[in-house]
Amino acid sequence: MNPYLVAGLPWYKNGISYPTHILLIDALIHEDWVVAGNAFLHLIMPSLTLALGVMAALVRLMRGTMLETLDQDFVNFARAKGVPEKVVINLYAKNNALLPVITNFGYLVAGLLGGVVVIEDVFDYPGIGMWLTDAMINNDMGGIMGGTLLFGIILVVTSLVLDIIYAKIDPRIRY
């Protein structure tokens, strides 16, 4: 490829191509295992911090719905029939208890995207959140609009995927 032709393009810089601009995925595409491993190591702490907050909310929600489901008649019936407890929980109760959790998952993702803004700032991770923070501090209107729009798109896509999963899990639902 002629380097002068592609020099201004963001996915081709200093003779190295950046297909996605996500360090981990770019390193995997170039099969540079050292860089990929390092990028993965730097992802662990921020993602763990983000996940912990959502985890607490999910555990609480799941517990509430699971307790409700385990009180219902069909669970009693299954137990009376002599179905082992493992099967009762995993096959009978879990899927039914998951439905309200999935409904609320979309809002949890919204919270996650909010958390990204702070956590990337704390861990100095060069992501969308960091970029949005910089745009805010520099009063960069394009950056703020683009970041907000991108977060909106991520949210819309997530809720679409969740709706599809919802229909898959609960066969009563038809769109």
Partner: peptide, 19 residues
């Protein structure tokens, strides 16, 4: 309104109204 990440919206409003 419920589905908007509030930190992001607050940043956008902060740009419009001044921080």
């Amino acid at each position: 309104v419920f589905s908007i990440p509030y930190l992001v919206l607050a940043i956008a409003i902060g740009y419009v109204l001044g921080r």
